[in-house]
Simulated assay, not measured.
Amino acid sequence: MVRRTARDLVAARFADSRGQVAVARSGHYQVGRDGGVLSLSPKHAETDTRVTVIVSYD
């Protein structure tokens, strides 16, 4: 059995409030005061794959 990481299973895309797409291979995105949209889509995931998204506010 091959164990895959979350990056292997789910594609993440973040666009800020101006529509600029940010790429973060580390999985960390910086969000300004105006916010943005985080989209997650399956790459090699099963339909019942669970993903945890952690949001922290400084």
Rank of each mutant, 00 (worst) to 15 (best):
M1R: 09
M1Y: 09
M1A: 12
V2T: 14
R3H: 01
R3Y: 04
R4L: 08
T5V: 00
A6W: 09
A6L: 04
D8I: 03
D8P: 05
L9Q: 03
V10R: 08
A11D: 12
A11Q: 13
R13M: 01
F14E: 00
F14S: 00
A15C: 02
A15S: 12
A15W: 04
D16S: 01
D16C: 09
S17V: 08
S17I: 05
R18T: 13
G19H: 03
G19M: 06
G19P: 03
V21M: 00
A22T: 07
A24P: 11
A24D: 14
R25H: 13
R25E: 15
S26K: 08
S26Q: 13
G27S: 08
G27A: 05
G27Q: 05
H28Q: 01
H28M: 05
Y29D: 03
Y29I: 00
Y29F: 12
Q30L: 12
Q30C: 05
V31M: 03
G32S: 05
G32H: 09
R33Y: 00
R33I: 04
R33P: 11
R33G: 03
D34L: 10
G35I: 09
G35S: 10
G36N: 13
V37N: 13
L38M: 07
L38T: 04
S39L: 09
L40E: 06
L40D: 07
S41W: 07
S41I: 06
P42I: 10
K43Y: 07
H44E: 15
H44Y: 14
H44W: 12
A45V: 10
A45M: 10
A45Y: 00
A45I: 08
E46Q: 15
E46S: 15
T47G: 14
T47D: 15
T47V: 15
D48W: 14
D48R: 15
T49F: 11
T49N: 06
R50V: 12
V51I: 14
T52H: 14
T52P: 10
T52V: 15
V53A: 04
V53I: 14
V53K: 05
I54E: 08
I54A: 12
V55S: 09
V55F: 04
V55G: 06
S56T: 12
Y57E: 14
D58E: 07
D58H: 03
